[in-house]
Design a protein around this nucleic acid. Sequence first.
DNA 1: CGCCGTATTGAGCGCTCTCAAGCTAGGTGG
DNA 2: CCACCTAGCTTGAGAGCGCTCAATACGGCG
Lengths: 233, 233
Amino acid sequence: MNNKANPLSSCSSCGFSPFCHLEEVNPQWMHQINSAVKRQLVLKKKQSLYVPQNTFHSLYAIHSGCLKTYEIDRDGNELINSFYFAGEILGFEAIARGNYLFSAAALSDALVCEIPYSHFIELLNSNSNLQKQILYLMSQQLTTGTYLNFVTAEQRLAAFLIDLSERLFVSEPHLEFNFPMSRQDIGNYLRLTAETISRLLAQFKDSKIITIEHKKIQFLQLDQLKTIAGIVK
Amino acid sequence: MNNKANPLSSCSSCGFSPFCHLEEVNPQWMHQINSAVKRQLVLKKKQSLYVPQNTFHSLYAIHSGCLKTYEIDRDGNELINSFYFAGEILGFEAIARGNYLFSAAALSDALVCEIPYSHFIELLNSNSNLQKQILYLMSQQLTTGTYLNFVTAEQRLAAFLIDLSERLFVSEPHLEFNFPMSRQDIGNYLRLTAETISRLLAQFKDSKIITIEHKKIQFLQLDQLKTIAGIVK
DNA sequence: CGCCGTATTGAGCGCTCTCAAGCTAGGTGG
DNA sequence: CCACCTAGCTTGAGAGCGCTCAATACGGCG
């Protein structure tokens, strides 16, 4: 892993900025947050950020790029626990155990900010608004990926696609985007095979619900997709 | 929901005490925690604690009994999100959204303590050790129920049984215990049918891995069960 | 251009579901 | 105390969804 000489220039370019997403960006926070970041790490595609054997010391905020956390089961299957995109934070699950539960690896070239847990705690103690924000973020993580709950493959994939479109662009959801991960990764996440993902995408395409060409997907009927996902509201 | 006249007498009888599990019980904490609890609620079996439409105001600590959180999908299936046992806290997932994501209902007669979120926040601000403890608890919740990850029904059930035995008795895991929930509930949680649960339990029994009679289960070969669950270490 | 990882597509199998019938335990009322 | 009732559990037979295995096509990158 490479260290960057100049850690951070501004809050807006910092992956730690989700702390600030919900409220007006506060110059004082910016300073506090920036000082909590130890260094930025440049990750090449497929490069590992941490493995379960590593003792927990730091949280990581994603500045740019995508990562996955995963474990390998007894039979050699890669079980992806979660995907992480720009502005999201990895490592919360390690607080309780003292070591990382999963392996984390980059899906693309990525830039992540390391936040030592001790700095993080100090930061929380110094600012009760940040504290609320952290509770908010952790709570949010408790609610993400709930589509693994769903029973059928169709439902899971539809819900995943919608979630993906919402998380890839924090500002506004896009109807068209590129998959940051392979069919195999999607399958490893949804507990389906790459073949099933491929077949389902073809099926959605035949039904005119999406267009898809390689990594590029476009939603033609978002409502229909939501119906399949079981998001009724 | 009934209100009790006398909210709390001592920390040891309080469901909020998981805050204190990890470190020496501190009299000062006890006082702070007890004052954060608004009231205790007595729940009858099958009674509802909250539904998704309810605005989020409070967290709930389970003093005694068991609860489940669930949602009903488009096709009418009850998807259980999580089970909660004595000493565990419900509601963290609602912090981000502002309302509860799931319905919560009692699996048995239960006693829960209501902790208004505003009290909770004050409590955190007043005590940085409690703050660490909360991060610990929320982190823990990020790591529970990971066996839904597993692919085969056998694996999921084995992992569920082990987790259950560890969570039902905080002090020391028991090899023998009674199921607090029905086969149907287990199935609704693991995304399997009650019939499949029944068949798998019979299969484990035939393999001399467990004994089972109605609600009473005993582990004969915990190692074997762990192997099936894929917990290799 | 040629290579290799990734994606698509097809055929057949197996695990889990569905549907259905019988069983058990516990509760209720006479 | 017993007959009955009901919800939950068990067990069986057949169907279907998603998996396995395999062949082929595609595309990025040297």
